[in-house]
């Protein structure tokens, strides 16, 4: 799609840190070795909406005359109304600004770029796309497959119409046969279920294929890109996917999981913020659904804001 500039990227995380010590020394050491996650940030008094608001304010600055606000999350504070509408009120956005949520997780940054990018490409002046989750609030404290891995974060990406912007390319896909492997039922007592081995099997096949398909469709090679920014689920899977995708270490942007864990749809923007990754980037997200998405974006002119921390 054309005429879509990525003006700002900001990420907010809670101040509260949680390490793996609750698992006991032996298990904790093994968990850290297997996943690379030493600690993560988790919400305490603050809410998911608070994180989104902080990221949004950082990205927007004084701007309020925007055309749309889209929130990508699977852990909204309320089922009704959408988080986007709550934030519309909190931020004081104009009544002409449309607001809605998209339900997507670890692939959600690409899905958000697809939805918001098309809105801008087809005529809206600007859209604020927020993507993030607080999965720490839906994991069982005794589930080794999920509790040690997931952290909380919210990202804000401001897209604006610009006739001279480099083209924004996004491709998303899904395979509903994987739906049962990453699941959270309705009900306040339900906890997230994840079959980690099934996720690995899916990602090992889908991610290299999605990257290859995007390169093929655009005629780009890895040499044409300044960096590849994958979703950051855990260190073992990340390194495996790097090798499968054939990306050199210096072009494979990581550095999230050790201190923040898997922060779902906020992981790609968090990697960009922590590494100040600029240039022509290939992004690849993947997760529950199954779902995945790739994007070629240009952040050369993007304001990449320093990490925002929310809490007491």
């Amino acid at each position: 799609m054309n005429h879509v500039a990525i003006r700002d990227i900001a990420v907010a995380v809670p101040t509260t840190r949680r390490d793996q010590s609750a698992w006991g020394d032996g298990v904790a050491a093994k968990l850290v070795a297997a996943t690379g996650v030493s600690e993560r940030r988790v919400i305490d008094k603050e809410t998911m909406t608070d994180l989104f608001e902080a990221a949004a304010r950082q990205a927007l600055g004084h701007r309020r005359a925007i055309g749309g606000i889209v929130v990508v999350t699977q852990t909204p504070d309320t089922r009704i109304p959408p988080t986007a509408n709550i934030l519309h009120g909190r931020l004081g956005l104009p009544s002409s600004c449309l607001a809605f949520d998209v339900n997507q997780g670890c692939s959600g940054y690409a899905y958000g770029l697809e939805v918001a990018g098309r809105m801008v490409s087809s005529g809206l002046q600007s859209v604020l796309m927020l993507a993030g989750d607080c999965l720490s609030s839906v994991v069982s404290p005794t589930d080794r497959a999920t509790e040690p891995i997931f952290g909380d974060a919210a990202s804000a990406t401001f897209l604006e119409r610009d006739e001279d912007a480099p083209s924004l390319l996004v491709t998303c896909g899904s395979d509903g046969k994987g739906a049962k492997h990453l699941l959270l039922d309705h009900g306040d007592t339900e906890c997230l279920y994840m079959n980690g081995a099934a996720v690995f099997e899916f990602a090992a096949a889908a991610v290299p294929a999605a990257v290859a398909a995007m390169l093929d469709a655009t005629g780009l090679t890895l040499d044409d890109l300044d960096a590849v920014v994958p979703h950051q689920p855990n260190a073992t899977m990340l390194e495996h996917l790097r090798l499968k995708c054939g990306v050199a270490e210096e072009k494979w942007i990581t550095g999230v999981v050790q201190e923040f864990g898997n922060v779902s749809s906020a992981s790609i923007p968090l990697a960009i913020v922590l590494n100040e990754t600029r240039g022509r980037l290939l992004l690849v997200g993947f997760g529950g659904g199954w779902s995945w998405g790739t994007a070629v974006v240009d952040t050369s002119e993007t304001r990449i804001h320093p990490l925002v921390e929310v809490g007491r």
Binding site: K30, L31, A34, T35, R144, G196, A197, F200, E201, A204, N234, T236, M237, E239, H240
Partner: peptide, 8 residues
């Protein structure tokens, strides 16, 4: 926890 490492 070994499953993922084994698959890799």
């Amino acid at each position: 926890m070994t499953a993922m490492g084994f698959m890799a």
